[in-house]
Nucleic acid binder design. Sequence first.
DNA 1: TCTTACCCAGTTTTT
DNA 2: CTGGGTAAGA
Length: 672
Amino acid sequence: MKKFVLSGGDSKQKTTMVRYRSLLNEQQFRAVFHESGPALVIAGAGTGKTRTLVYRVARLVESGCDPSSITLLTFTRRAADEMMQRAAAVLDERCQRIRGGTFHHYCSQLLHQYAEHIGYPGNFTILDSSDAMECIQLIRSRAGLDTKKKRFPKKSTLYSIFSSAVNRQMDIQEVLEADYPQFISLGEEIAGIEQGYRKYKEDNHVMDFDDLLLKTSGLLSESDEVRRKVASSNLHLLVDEYQDTNALQAELTRQLSSEHGNVMAVGDDAQSIYSFRGADLENMLRFPELFPGTEIIRLEENYRSTQQILTLANTLLEKAARKFEKNLYTKRGEGDLPGLVKAADMHDQSRFISQMILNIREQGLQLSDIAVLFRNGRDSFDLEVMLNQKEIPYIKFGGQKFTEAAHVKDVLAHLRLMVNPRDFISWNRVLMLIDGIGPKTAEDLYQWVTRSADPYSPGRAPDLSGRYLTQLKALGELFAKLRQLDGSVTEQLRAVVEYYALFCRKRYDDHPKRMKDLESFIDISGKYRTLEELIELLALDPVDSTAVETEASQNEEPPLVLSTIHSAKGLEWDTVFVIQCLDGILPSGYAIEDSGQMDEELRLMYVAVTRARERLFITYPALFQSRYGDYFSNPSRFLEGISENALEPWLLVEEHQKPLLESANNNGGNQL
DNA sequence: TCTTACCCAGTTTTT
DNA sequence: CTGGGTAAGA
């Protein structure tokens, strides 16, 4: 028997209830029992990263650490909740009391508490990206730049520029030089819009996503008193998915852990897929510089996937321009070879997947053990139609968010005004629903309403035309009712939906479907305790559009998962289909010129294949159908030159009496 | 001032 | 197929 001398252990662990040593490997154990000071855990896909964090939380709590002094920052709120639950299962429900969430969520809570230190009221509301772009458009057109110069960047480009500047801690000119050379000469005008946008946010008591991080960091650097207070409350700070953090988040990590210095970051440089949001995998590699004395722990043994899947994943990573020192291995047994399925067109691809899913379910697997992954939200539309036909229940993550639909935004705007009556774009939305009110009247009313002692009686404004007076009074009555119903979110929402039904019918041909959405919304609103919470959480953690229906209808069978690869981060399934693996889609056509971006697309593919435990299928259609016509398409260049011993070609055969699917080592035939 | 009708362009990933 | 912009009519 081999002996291994463990360092860093102490007498406490001997009395623990949880038998950590038998549940963890040596590296995991080291991370879980890391005592104090900074640590960086570099963990390959499927190496038990989440498990390590879960056990670390349990171990800290078990050793007497106050749960509320532990903060766990994760990439999504879903991930945080799941980890807290798992930790509670390992130890006890004290683990639910640790603080967990995303950077944005954590910062938002701090800001509500300390907003007055930076000149904001505590009731500020959050702009999601489409709200933010609407504001930018407003400033842009007021500046008169939209008509004079055709070349001036659009609102979405402006938003990306501003966001890059914040997240990468650069100034506007630097961002332009790095990423938008065509707009360098417009630097001053763009900076002017940015100033106008900033002033707008202050005047309206709103913040966008980036402000949440930026203003928290500013607060902590300006007020040493607040910094000390906040940082003292973080005895232990754990940050997950560190490879997808940006410069600003790194700075926040430093500030939040600046009193106790107990910070552990966990991540995998090979899974960095959020550079479009300012994330930089160098951030993780620089962690030891930012935190001197960092202990580095590497998790390398994979517990998730079969060796066949890992071999394919390793092969993919070798194609990166910038190499990774990664080689995943497992002690798990061998499994099936991953399959490469060439379908004639999208429709046949969907047929293959839905039939295969039904086969697998026959074999006794739950639908929820299967996932279909894709690059873009719309890549699953064709499949979704077929799943609906075959009545296979599914839930889709990524793509269109529930709160982005116009009718949901309309309803939310009314509620947002109850929390923050200075929010101009919400007033605009609410007022312009009314017949006869356009931008000018809405603006005038906003001016009056924000100066008035009672902003909730727009019907009392002077010089109102009879055309819309009664409607404005009805709006005032709605506000009065909402105030009366304070305390019951569901009833408040119901009141707005009742008021809105009329407008919905007039505006949209498909109003029955939209009203049904809103009814489902009412059904799930019970989980929010206050209006503030509902608005805040929906902005910070928008619900995926199919999730609302699924949640509201309480399906008997756990559904199949459809997800963008980005949203599948950190998750795993028994069987995974990666669909639409076409050159121009994965990798995206936008990335092809830039080797850095191409590497990120490759990592995306890597993330997709490493989600699978047992079975993996990569599929693509030979014929790509687009609006402008059909053309033959090529499989992803990432699949080029991969041996048939690593990725087995499948041939789809149209059935007559034979079984539909046959495995075949024949790459040539593609006829159905 | 507001609404409607029309044309043109562009279409990733998410807190 | 949608969003954004323009122009004409109410």
